[in-house]
Design a protein around this nucleic acid. Structure first.
Lengths: 163, 163
DNA sequence: CATATAAAAGACAAATTTATCTTTAATTAG
DNA sequence: CTAATTAAAGATAAATTTGTCTTTTATATG
C-alpha cells in the first residue's frame, strides 16, 4: 500500500519517549533500592526495568548530569538516590531532563504560535489536560513512587519479587 | 559529548505525532472550507496549515480511507467534509486513524502489563489524565473546531486572514 | 602501585518517523 | 476521445530516536 508505515506509531507508546520511560522506571527502581541503603549497577537496573542496558546507561548519564541520580565509579559503585533527594525530587525533573517541557507546554497540534491571546483551535480543549499533567508531574515525588513499589501495591515488573 | 542527541526530543512536540498534528490541522481547515461549500486541493491544505505537501498528501490518504474526509479526483476535485460528517466526526477518530489509541490507553511509563489489578507506580497519577484526554477527544467535534476558526476566535496560522 | 570494577564517553548501527519525488488512476471539460 | 487536473500509490531519501559496542576514566582494594 505504501502509507501504512506512517500510522499507528510504534515507539511513542504514550506521553513520553522511550528514553524518558526508561529514565522514570530506572529512577523509581534505584529509589526503591536506595531506601534500603543499597546501590545498584547499570546491569541490575536494566534487568529490573526490562530495558536495553547500553541505552539505559546513556539515559543514566543524563540523570546523573542533571543531579537527579548519584553515581559512583569503581568497586562497589553504582547508582543511588540520597535520602534528601528521594523526598525532594519530583517526576517533572526527570521528564524535563530527558524529554524537555514540550509535553506540558507545547501546542496540542504543533503550532509555534499558540497562546492565550492567539489560541489554536484546540487550545482550550488541551488547556485542562496540560494543567493536570503539569500539576501531577510537579507534585509527584520519587519517594511516593518508590514507597508504592516497596509496599507491593505497584509494580515495575509483571511478577513482583518484592515480597 | 555523545548523549545529547538522546534528550530534548525534537519532533514529538507533545501528545501526538507530527503526522497526527498535520492530520488534525488539515481536517479543521478542510472543515472550515466545507462549511462554506468549498472543496480544497492538497496544495491549499499544505499551504494553509504550513506542512510539507507530499507528507500531508499521505496523511490525507489515511483520513479518506478512514472515511473521515471525502476526496474527489479530477478537475474541480479536492477534499471536503460533508455537512453530516462535520457534526458527527470527533477528534478521537482522527487520532485513532493516525496514531492509534496508545496515547489514551497505554501505560504512562511504557509497561505492557499495567492495569487496575496490576498497576505500575504511576498508574493512578496518569489515570485522571488519560480519562480527561479520552473525554475531550470523544466529545470534541470537527464542527466546533471549524466554527471557532471561522469566527476568528481561534487560529491555524499566525496571521488570521479569515476576517 | 597494580588490578579489578563500574560508570562515562564516544563511535557506530538499526529502527522508526518524517519528508520527497515519480508514476498511476480517476474525473471533468472540451 | 483527448487533454488537463487532481488524488492515490509506490519508491526512495532524510532526520530522528532507539539500541549496541568499544574505549576511557575514576575508584576501591590488595
Amino acid at each position: 500500500m505504501g502509507f501504512e508505515y506512517i500510522c499507528k506509531k510504534k515507539n511513542k507508546d504514550c506521553m513520553f519517549s522511550k528514553a524518558c520511560e526508561y529514565g522514570i522506571r530506572a529512577s523509581i527502581f534505584i529509589a526503591t533500592k536506595s531506601s534500603e541503603g543499597v546501590r545498584v549497577g547499570i546491569k541490575d537496573v536494566a534487568k529490573e526495568i526490562d530495558s536495553p542496558e547500553p541505552f539505559t546507561a546513556k539515559i543514566m548519564q543524563i540523570l546523573t548530569k542533571s543531579g537527579i541520580i548519584h553515581s559512583a565509579k569503581g568497586v562497589g559503585g553504582g547508582f543511588e538516590v540520597s535520602n534528601q533527594a528521594l523526598r525532594s525530587i519530583k517526576l517533572i525533573q526527570i521528564v524535563d531532563a530527558i524529554d524537555g517541557d514540550s509535553i506540558y507546554k507545547g501546542c496540542g497540534i504543533g503550532l509555534k504560535e499558540c497562546s492565550e491571546v492567539h489560541p489554536c483551535p484546540v487550545h482550550n480543549q488541551f488547556k485542562k489536560i496540560r494543567e493536570l499533567l503539569l500539576t501531577m508531574l510537579t507534585t509527584t515525588t520519587l519517594e511516593e513512587l518508590a514507597l508504592g513499589v516497596n509496599s507491593g501495591d505497584f509494580h515495575l515488573k509483571i511478577f513482583s519479587q518484592n515480597k
